[in-house]
Design a protein around this nucleic acid. Sequence first.
DNA 1: CTGTTAGCGCCTTCAC
DNA 2: GTGAAGGCGCTAACAG
Lengths: 337, 337
Amino acid sequence: MARLNMRELALKLGVDRATVSRALSNDKAHLVAPATRERIRQAAGAAGYRPDLTAATLRRGRSHTVGILVSDLGNETFIDVIRTIFRHLDARSDAPSITPLIAETLDHPDATRRLIHTFLSRRVDAIISLASTEADTAILQDAAREVPVVLAIRAIAGAVFPSALCDDRAGGAMVATHFAERGHKIVCQVQGPPLSATFKNRALGFSEVCASRSIVETPQRIFAETATSAAGKRTLDALLAISPRPTAIFAHNDALALGVIEAMRHRGLRCPEDLAIVGFNNTQLSRILAVPLSTVDYPVEEVSRHAGELVRNLIADPSYRFESRLFTPSLIVRASS
Amino acid sequence: MARLNMRELALKLGVDRATVSRALSNDKAHLVAPATRERIRQAAGAAGYRPDLTAATLRRGRSHTVGILVSDLGNETFIDVIRTIFRHLDARSDAPSITPLIAETLDHPDATRRLIHTFLSRRVDAIISLASTEADTAILQDAAREVPVVLAIRAIAGAVFPSALCDDRAGGAMVATHFAERGHKIVCQVQGPPLSATFKNRALGFSEVCASRSIVETPQRIFAETATSAAGKRTLDALLAISPRPTAIFAHNDALALGVIEAMRHRGLRCPEDLAIVGFNNTQLSRILAVPLSTVDYPVEEVSRHAGELVRNLIADPSYRFESRLFTPSLIVRASS
DNA sequence: CTGTTAGCGCCTTCAC
DNA sequence: GTGAAGGCGCTAACAG
C-alpha cells in the first residue's frame, strides 16, 4: 500500500499542503478556520494519513527523539529510571511526544562512542546517559557541543554535566550507621566495579562512617567483577576466609546481596544470625525474599523527574541555567540486618 | 557548533556533493577513484563530519531502523532476545547498522497502537513484536501492509505472521513427563496470564501429558495476575488449600517459581521435599538459588536468530517466502524437583 | 570516474 | 485564513 503523503491529501481536499500541515499541527492549528481544520483532520484520520516524521525532522531541525545510554538493560533500577524519565517527558501533552532511542553500552567505551555517533547522526534532540564512566568523558563532552547531554544515576568526577543523581555516599553512610547502631564491630563491603562512580561513592560513604564510629572494616576488600547475583555468590568464600570474621556485610546492590544470601543458605548459614546483610536499590526481589532484605531505597522518582526536566529545559533553551541535583536515598530496614 | 554538512565538505575539497556521498557510502565507494575516496574519507574524519541519517532516510525511503515491541522491559528473557536479535542483525558488516526503536507496551492494546503508529511515522523498515496478544491482531495486520511485521516469542492464534517461537506446548509437556517419571501423582500449575499465547500453550502441553499419563491435575487452577515473583508468592496460600494436596508445581516462569519458593521458605516448607517445583526460562536466578531451580531452557539463540533472519530477508524483499519456525526448549533438571 | 539535476515529504516564510 | 515557493541534507538517475 503506497503511503499517502501530505500533497496527495491536500489535493484530495482541494486545499494547499500548507493548510493541511497547519491543521494537523499542534501549535499552528489555530491559524486554520475551525471548519476547514475539522474537515482536514477527519479526512486525515479516515485516510490513515501518517505524517512522515523523518521529513519533518529534516525541515524542523528537531527530531523529537532522545538518545538514552544504559550500561545494562537487565538492571531493574536502570529500567525503572528510563521508564519514569519518559513518563515525565511525555506528560506534557501540549508538546509532541518524544521517542527514546535506547542503547546498551555494557560499559564498553568503544560501544559508547559508536552509539553516541549513531545518536548524533540520527539527530537526537538530547542524550541522557545512565552509563557514563570516566572513560567516556571526552566523548560525552564532544557530544555536548552538538546537543544537550544529561547524566543520570552515574556522575563523572571532575566533569560538569547537568545531572540527576542519587547521593550514593549518603546511602553508604546510612548503612554503616545502621550497622553501628546494631552493635556490629567488624564489617565488610562487597563492592561493585569501581568503574562507575556509583559504587565508589557508596564505598566511600560507608568507610567514612565506619572510621568515625570506630567500626572495623576488614582489611581485605571484596570486589565483585560485576554487580550481579552470580558474582555475589562467588564472593562468599572470600568473605568467610577473612579474619577477624565480619558480622555484617554491605553489598553494593541487591543482586550482589542475593548472591551472598544464596551462597550462605547453601552452606547452612543463616541471615541475619550468622551474617547480617544490607543491599542497595530496593528492588522487587528484596521484598519477596523469605528473609526480606534490608536495603537502601533508590530515589527513582526524583532522579528521573529531574533528569526529565533538565532534558526538557535544555532542549527548549540550550543556554538554560541548569542545576544538577543529588537526591537522598533512604534506608529500609527489614529482616536481613 | 554548527554542524558541517555534505555540501560544505564537498566545497572544502573541491569535489561535488555526489562524489562525497559515494565515497562515504558502503555500496558505491568503488565508483570513486581510490585516491579521491581516501582523501574524502580522511577529510570527513578530520572534520568530524556525520551524515544526517534523517535526510538520508527521506531520500532513500529506508531508515535502517527497526521498531521492537516488548511487553515488559524488566523481563530478562525478552531482553536477551532483543539483544541477540540485534547482534545477528548487525553481524552483517556489509550492511549499514540498524538502530532499534525499543518500546514497552505493558500489554495495553492502546499503548501498542500508539507505539506502532509512532514506528510507522518514523519510517521503521520493519517491526518486531515480542508483545503480541490477540487484542493486537488487527493493528498488527494493518501495520503489516506497510512494513514487514515479525512475531517473536508470542504467537497470535489464527493470524499468519512470520514468526520465531518457542514450542511452549512441548515445554509444558516436558515438565509433566518429568513429574510422571519422578512418581508424582497430584500436580498443579501456577499459570501466567492467558492473555499471551505463551502461557496458554505451556498449560496445554502440561495438561495433555498429565491426562495421558494419568497424573491428577488438581481441579483448582491457580492463576497469577502477572508473571512476577510477587504474584507467585501470593499463590502459595491457595496452593496449600488445595485438597488433595499436590506434590509438584509447574510454575509458568522462573519468577513465579521464585515467589512460590520464597513463600514456602517463609512457612518452613522445603523444596523439593515438601513440594517440588519447576520453572520456565532458565534465567540467571534459577542457577544461583541455593536449591537450584529445575526449569525449561528457553531457546533464546534460535528464536532470536530466526527472528533476525526473517526481518533481514523481509526488508530486502517484502515478498520473501518466509518460514515461521517453532524451536524446542529443553528441560533442565536441578535440585528443586 | 565525476558532475549536474532533481526530488524524497514536510514546514516556514512571505504574500495576498 | 489560505496559497505559493523554497529548502532542510542527502542520494539516485542521467550525462558526459
